[in-house]
C-alpha cells in the first residue's frame, strides 16, 4: 500500500488557455486511477491556485451561457465534492482585491463537505515541499 502525492499548481488565467482546465481534469482523474494500480495504492492530489491562477476561483462563472462549455468553477466544485485539497493563495487574492465571498469555497449544493482554503503562500510552499511530484499549469 502506498500513496503518491501530486501537486497541481495553477498559475494560468482561466479560459485564455486550456492550462487551468487541464490541471483540474488531471487532478480529478486521480479518482479513477485505482484501476491501474495495486489494491491500496493511490494517488493523492493537492490543487493550489497562485498568481494569476487565483482568478480561476471566482464564482458565478457564466461559461456555459457564453461558450457552452463546462466552467472552471464546476471543475473546482467537483474537486471539492471529491474531497480534493484545494488551496488559494491569500497574498495573490489580496493583490487582486478579491474577498472570500467572491470565491468558490465549497460544493454544498452538490452535497460536498470539503471546503477550499485560503492560505498564505508559506502554506502552499509547505504543500509543494510535501508532494512527490509537482506540476505547474
Amino acid at each position: 500500500m502506498a500513496t503518491t502525492k501530486m501537486g497541481f499548481i495553477i498559475k494560468s488565467l482561466p479560459y485564455k488557455t486550456e492550462a487551468s482546465r487541464l490541471a483540474m481534469t488531471h487532478a480529478i482523474a486521480s479518482q479513477t486511477v485505482e484501476i491501474y494500480l495495486e489494491d491500496g495504492d493511490m494517488v493523492e492530489p493537492v490543487v493550489c491556485f497562485i498568481g494569476d491562477g487565483v482568478l480561476n476561483c471566482l464564482k458565478n462563472q457564466a461559461t456555459a451561457k457564453h461558450y457552452d462549455i463546462t466552467s472552471i468553477e464546476m471543475h473546482i466544485r467537483n474537486s471539492l465534492l471529491l474531497d480534493l485539497k484545494v488551496l488559494y493563495c491569500k497574498e495573490d487574492l489580496d493583490r487582486f482585491g478579491i474577498k472570500e465571498d467572491a470565491l468558490i469555497m465549497d460544493a454544498e449544493e452538490l452535497g460536498g463537505e470539503t471546503k477550499a482554503q485560503i492560505v498564505p503562500y508559506s502554506e502552499i510552499q509547505k504543500e509543494m515541499d510535501s508532494v512527490n511530484h509537482l506540476q505547474f499549469f
Binding site: 488557455t17 479513477t32 484501476i35 491501474y36 495504492d41 494517488v43 511530484h133 505547474f136
Partner: peptide, 22 residues
C-alpha cells in the same frame, strides 16, 4: 486512454516532468 493513465504512470515514476502548453 483517459487522464488516469498519466496519474497511474506517475505513481511509481522516479521523475515526473510536465511540459505545459501555450
Amino acid at each position: 486512454k483517459s487522464m488516469d493513465w498519466y496519474l497511474a504512470s506517475s505513481f511509481d515514476a522516479d521523475r515526473v516532468l510536465m511540459i505545459g502548453g501555450e
